[in-house]
Simulated scan of single mutants.
Amino acid sequence: MSFFSGLLEEKQAPKKWPILGDRTDRTELAIQLAFRKKARLICPRVRIVAVPNGTHIASQAGRRKANQEGRSAGFPDVVCFWSHGQLTGNIVPQTAMIEFKAGKTGCVSDDQSEWLSWLQTSGFACVVSRHEDHALSFLRSIGAPFVDRRGL
């Protein structure tokens, strides 16, 4: 039984998440780097945090430490934060989760599907993407603040 089975109201199989974007030969890291680089230019008010859950840790002691620090298998690769409003009383915080998939073979694991389903059920915007432009289009579609230097 997974951590999420007690949190979801309905006990159901994890949702199958569609992966946006064409299959490419780029690595997941290359896609994430391109995403962050473009985002700094066209949506500078969006704060982007990478979550290193998928990092390979060779030593058992290193894995134990990462788990103690809160590593959780399947959590999305990137968390994006922004807000609307300028005055303290009318600021509306927004958050989006992005899971990037590499190349031709990347697929959503059961752990990732459980996390994404739980996050979406909890009101967070989530997407799985193979290309930085699709991820940026997703952010634009849910209201992230963009500067119109380039039409994405």
Rank of each mutant, 00 (worst) to 15 (best):
I19V: 14
G143V: 12
Q94N: 15
G21D: 00
P52D: 00
T55K: 04
W118P: 02
Q112I: 06
F75C: 10
V79N: 04
R45N: 07
D111N: 11
P93L: 10
A58Q: 08
G54F: 01
K101Q: 02
V78I: 15
D111F: 04
I91R: 15
A34S: 09
Q86Y: 13
C126F: 04
H84C: 07
A73H: 01
T24E: 01
E99C: 04
A61Y: 00
K104N: 11
K38N: 03
C107E: 15
P93F: 05
K104L: 14
Q112E: 12
D111V: 09
S59Y: 00
A13I: 08
A73T: 14
R64G: 03
H56E: 00
A39M: 03
A30R: 05
G85A: 08
A125S: 14
V147P: 06
C126K: 13
W82S: 13
G21Q: 00
Q68S: 13
E99G: 06
L29F: 02
H131W: 05
A135G: 09
G70V: 03
P14M: 05
E132P: 14
L139W: 11
C126E: 06
T27P: 04
I142S: 09
P76D: 02
F124I: 11
T27E: 01
A102S: 14
D25S: 10
S72W: 01
H131D: 13
M97V: 08
F35E: 03
L87Q: 10
T95H: 10
V51C: 04
F35A: 07
N53I: 02
L139V: 14
A96F: 04
H131N: 15
V49A: 04
N67R: 12
G85H: 11
A66L: 01
H56F: 01
A96H: 10
V128R: 12
G106Y: 02
G70W: 03
L87T: 15
Q68F: 02
H84M: 13
V78E: 05
I42T: 12
T121W: 04
E99V: 03
A58G: 04
V79G: 04
G106H: 03
S83T: 14
E69C: 07
D110F: 03
L33H: 06
K15Y: 05
D110E: 15
V128G: 13
A125R: 12
S141R: 15
G103P: 07
D110R: 12
D22S: 14
F100P: 08
L29Y: 02
C43V: 10
A50R: 00
I48R: 02
E69S: 09
G89D: 09
A58R: 15
V49G: 00
K101A: 01
E114D: 07
V128A: 15
G123R: 07
F146P: 11
F124D: 05
T95P: 10
V46H: 01
T55N: 02
W17D: 03
R140M: 09
S137D: 11
P52G: 01
W17K: 05
P145N: 12
S72T: 08
K104R: 14
R63Y: 00
